[in-house]
């Protein structure tokens, strides 16, 4: 064994340190390379991610687009349905108005001869009683021939039907208009009680005679509202109530002012003792085109429109119904929001 001296020890240490340094340098080299690779990997991943992100964005855009298209086609379908049912509704009365008018012009032709004869009889040229009697005889015969009494009765009824039909068309058109009406046109301070009374008067023809209307009205502050649209809404609720009743009907119209959490509102209840609504259908009745009425009888737009109108007044509509017992629709309209509206 070599004798260790200070200088051999130093030399040995130097060699050791050199080896260690090489080792450290190699390690550093390796780690740098690994770091570089990791960095590159990271960069690639970032690019990949950016790419995926881009693709996701495109997908989202595509989805948005499809969604918009779907919404549009849904809207078109809804409009299509609306047009179809409105066309049907209008076609019905137009059908019988047209056939009534045809019959009427037929009758008028029959009556032409009679009118002419009548004119002759009343004219001053005829002086001889003989001729007059003869003419009256002919008139009677002619009247019998064309069944004049019948025509007279029939004409009245045909005309009445035409009026009814025209009225029905007018109602449908008003219904339709209420969807698109410029919303801010007829906002004014109105008396809800008075509006209800007007509505009932308007619908009186349609209210069957066996249906009683009972009033239970409280003193109300005037409310700022769109009178026309609100009236339409009440009319719809009233007509629904009327249609739910078969016999011994009772419709109660009730108004109240309430105050909840410092907010004043007017509450309007329209109750009937009609056939009621099955619980499972309660969620559906406000849907557009939902109707249980016979084909051509209802559009199913009534309550949908009512809900719209109530919402436009920042109000709410609730319904309570018991099958075979009756239904109550409750409309609550706040004063507060309405006052704010007034400021605008």
């Amino acid at each position: 064994m070599i004798k260790m001296t200070n200088s051999t020890a130093l030399a040995a240490k130097l060699v050791r340190e050199q080896i260690a340094r090489k080792q450290a340098e190699t390690l550093l080299e390796e780690k740098s390379l690994a770091l570089f690779k990791a960095n590159q990997e990271l960069h690639n991943r970032a690019l990949e991610l950016a790419d995926q992100n881009q693709q996701l964005k495109l997908k989202v855009e595509e989805l948005d687009h499809t969604h918009a298209e779907l919404a549009q086609s849904e809207k078109m379908a809804a409009i299509g349905m609306l047009v179809a049912s409105v066309a049907h509704e209008i076609n019905n009365p137009i059908g019988f108005i047209t056939s009534n008018l045809e019959l009427l012009s037929e009758y008028r032709k029959h009556c032409d001869g009679i009118l002419k004869l009548q004119e002759e009889i009343t004219s001053r040229h005829i002086t001889s009683d003989q001729t007059r009697v003869e003419l009256i005889q002919r008139l009677d015969n002619m009247k019998k021939e064309v069944d004049f009494d019948y025509i007279q009765d029939e004409t009245a009824s045909l005309l009445e039907d035409c009026c009814l039909g025209a009225n029905r068309i007018r109602n449908i058109v008003t219904d339709l208009m209420s969807f698109t009406h410029a919303k801010d046109l007829d906002w004014q301070l109105i008396d809800v009680n008075e509006l209800l009374q007007k509505t009932v008067k308007l619908a009186f023809n349609e209210i069957k005679f066996q249906t009683d209307i009972r009033w239970d009205l409280a003193n109300l502050d005037f409310i700022y509202a769109s009178g026309g649209r609100l009236g339409q809404a009440f009319l719809n609720l009233l007509m629904n109530a009327v249609h739910s009743i078969e016999h011994d009907g009772l419709i109660i119209l009730r108004t109240r002012m309430i105050e909840e959490k410092g907010e004043k509102s007017v509450v309007i209840d329209i109750s009937d003792n009609g056939h009621g609504i099955p619980e499972k259908d309660l969620a559906l009745i406000f849907e557009p085109f939902y109707t249980t009425k016979k084909k051509g009888k209802g559009t199913g737009l009534g309550l949908h429109m009512v809900e719209h109108v109530v919402q436009d007044h920042s109000g709410k509509i609730e319904v309570k119904s018991t099958l075979d017992k009756g239904t109550r629709f409750r409309v609550t309209l706040p004063y507060k929001d309405i006052n704010r509206m007034q400021l605008n």
């Binding site: 340190e17 050199q18 260690a20 340094r21 390690l27």
Partner: peptide, 9 residues
């Protein structure tokens, strides 16, 4: 290792 140690190894 010939005791050629480095702190990082």
């Amino acid at each position: 290792s010939a005791c050629a140690y480095t702190t990082v190894g």
